[in-house]
């Protein structure tokens, strides 16, 4: 059962060719990590999946919705596909608890008390139950990101997209966030993760996708094998750079 399908997807920003002939199928429950040098189109690819970026041509099916079809209601896709950002994007005017309950109460029409109960359970899961009444500005980066993950889980999504979730964090904060992500992966969530955390890719990823210049150059289910023996020269160069510095 596929959750996300790219068929011959192209994406242009004006004349800039951001995504070139993308073909990729991600199954339900799969954890896919996407790596590659900056400017390779990783984030763009991720952002097309929930319609933050629109594709120029080709076919993109997410949770059985056709994203290339203008009639498709993007809100329905976003209801089912969560996203976690590099810079958290928590609602600055809401408390931690409200950050998590806003989506369920507004979009899923959940009962407020019920939403709060579930939000507290999620905060407990990410280890931040005591931070519920605080505003995001009072939290550390790692705490903010764990709240952001709880916020996207509160919508009970079919998949969660992670756009470099640990890149803006201090090194000592990264572990807590990756632990939470691993927990979610174990529960069977479909996850697409753009990351530089090779350890996470190896430990948690079912599959690794290497991108450069807007193309998918390698797509391997043997994640360890990919790191030991990347086939593509661009991938070899990239791996040696990040491992030997």
């Amino acid at each position: 059962m596929s959750m996300i399908e790219f068929h011959d997807v192209e994406k242009y920003y004006g004349k800039f060719h951001a995504l070139k002939n993308i073909n990729l199928t991600i199954d339900r429950g799969e954890v896919v990590t996407i790596i590659g040098p900056s400017g390779s189109g990783k984030s763009t690819l991720l952002r097309t999946i929930n319609g933050l970026e629109l594709i120029t041509s080709g076919q993109l099916i997410v949770n059985d919705y056709d994203l290339a079809d203008r009639k498709t209601d993007m809100n329905k896709i976003r209801k089912n596909v969560g996203m976690v950002f590099q810079h958290f994007n928590l609602y600055a005017n809401k408390t931690v608890l409200e950050n998590i309950t806003l989506g369920p109460t507004l979009v899923l029409k959940a009962d407020k008390a019920q939403a709060e109960k579930e939000a507290m359970a999620l905060l407990d899961m990410v280890g931040l139950a005591d931070q519920a009444p605080k505003f995001p500005a009072a939290l550390s980066g790692g705490q903010k990101q764990r709240v952001a993950i709880a916020r996207s889980l509160a919508m009970k999504p079919r998949a969660i997209l992670f756009d470099e979730p640990t890149s803006a964090l201090d090194p000592e904060m990264i572990g807590d966030v990756l632990d939470v992500m691993q927990k979610i992966a174990k529960q069977g969530m479909t996850m697409v993760v753009v990351t530089h955390e090779m350890g996470f890719a190896k430990r948690v990823g079912d599959r690794i996708v290497f991108m450069a210049d807007g193309q998918i150059l390698e797509d391997a289910t043997d994640v360890k094998g990919f790191f030991d023996h990347p086939k593509e020269p661009r991938a070899q160069e990239f791996i040696s750079k990040i491992l030997n510095h």
Binding site: N50, L52, M74, N75, R78, K79, G82, M83, F85, H87, F88, N89, L90, Y91, A92, N93, K94, L102, G103, L106, V107, L108, A148, R151, S152, M155
Partner: peptide
């Protein structure tokens, strides 16, 4: 812009994102 993107990714419509997230911050 991340406030709007965060809200839209959270499933909120443009108007919901405006009224509940962006506008209250803009007013201040």
């Amino acid at each position: 812009n991340g406030q709007m993107e965060g809200a839209r990714s959270n499933g909120l419509s443009y108007m919901q994102a405006m009224t509940h997230v962006v506008f209250p911050q803009a007013i201040k």
